[in-house]
């Protein structure tokens, strides 16, 4: 018996069990159940029957579902692009020798550590039709004459939710890119300066190429988080007005829980998987380790 437990493989298996059990129970099982539900007509309080692709074919013809796909793509592309640009800019600023450097770095992280639901409620007030501080300020400055209906108009609502998402997501991008910037040895910049590179050329030929591996990782995560966003939308607009801000995640919840159509909601959630997979594969193949990062002779 003792010799059995001394075996490296047996021991390894035993140590792996808790982690494997957690993953199986909380990750694999829900994912499998969700996917399975998508192929059934389950409703709340009633176990479903296998109905094949019926949910999916219905969703493809459903204009609201198609709108939610458009919203999700628009939301993800616009928010991620701006988060990347702002995050990179912030990281470059914070990488300089500013006074109170660590203080500013801590401040930048704030939006990230505040619970999303709380910051969403703050944005709800900022975007309020009657009490919006933004409208108030703009009116006082004489720039507008009527309060902006941030969340009542479809395009305003889309852009407003994107702005809130950007505010929340920039710190993550900025701090990760800052960590990446700090791995670049200062002597490379000095060598480039002696080689005659302008600040822009130093950024273009030294910073950016050396940062690509980290950009790839950070932006993959950023895209995944944004694509699956739920909390912000649910607190701010619940998908309205006229479903203009419904993302696939919020619509799926809407259909499944308040609407009771578990099967349909699950099918919609399952439809997100191909997009997420595509994002992961893109970063895996397109931005995998460059040749120059690899060690001597491969």
């Amino acid at each position: 018996m003792n010799r059995f437990f001394d075996n490296r493989n047996v021991l390894g298996l035993i140590f792996m069990l808790p982690a494997a059990a957690l993953l199986l129970v909380f990750l694999t099982y829900p994912l499998a159940l969700g996917t399975w539900l998508g192929f059934t007509d389950a409703r709340i309080g009633r176990a479903g029957h296998w109905i094949g692709l019926e949910n999916f074919s219905m969703l493809v013809q459903d204009s609201v579902a198609r709108l939610s796909l458009f919203n999700t793509l628009f939301y993800t592309v616009v928010a991620s692009t701006i988060k990347f640009a702002l995050g990179l800019w912030l990281a470059l600023l914070l990488n300089r020798n500013l006074p109170f450097k660590s203080f500013f770095r801590a401040i930048v992280l704030l939006p990230f550590i505040v619970p999303t639901a709380l910051s969403a409620i703050a944005f709800w007030w900022i975007y309020d039709a009657q009490f919006s501080v933004v409208s108030w300020a703009l009116e006082r400055m004489g720039l507008i004459h009527r309060y902006i209906d941030f969340l009542g108009d479809p395009w305003n609502a889309r852009l407003s939710t994107i702005a809130a998402n950007i505010w929340r997501g920039v710190p993550f991008v900025a701090i990760c890119l800052l960590a990446g910037l700090q791995t670049i040895p200062p002597s490379l910049y000095e060598a480039a300066a002696l080689d005659g590179a302008t600040p822009w050329q130093r950024f273009r030929h030294v910073t950016l190429p050396l940062l690509t591996p980290i950009i790839a990782v950070v932006m993959t995560f950023s895209v995944l988080f944004t694509f699956t966003d739920f909390q912000l939308i649910y607190v701010l607009t619940r998908g309205g007005p006229l479903n203009a801000t419904h993302l696939m995640a919020t619509l799926s919840f809407q259909r499944a829980i308040p609407g009771g159509n578990l099967g349909e909601g699950a099918a919609l959630a399952t439809l997100m998987i191909p997009f997420l997979l595509a994002a992961i594969l893109f970063s895996y193949f397109g931005l995998q380790r460059r040749k120059w990062q690899q060690g001597a002779r491969d």
């Binding site: 040895p185 002597s187 490379l188 000095e190 060598a191 480039a192 002696l194 030929h205 030294v206 190429p209 050396l210 460059r290 120059w292 990062q293």
Partner: peptide, 15 residues
């Protein structure tokens, strides 16, 4: 119009 050789070489790793 000077050129410098650094202690850690400072070669651009991606080139």
């Amino acid at each position: 119009d000077i050129a410098m050789v650094f202690q850690n070489y400072a070669l651009y790793p991606h080139m």
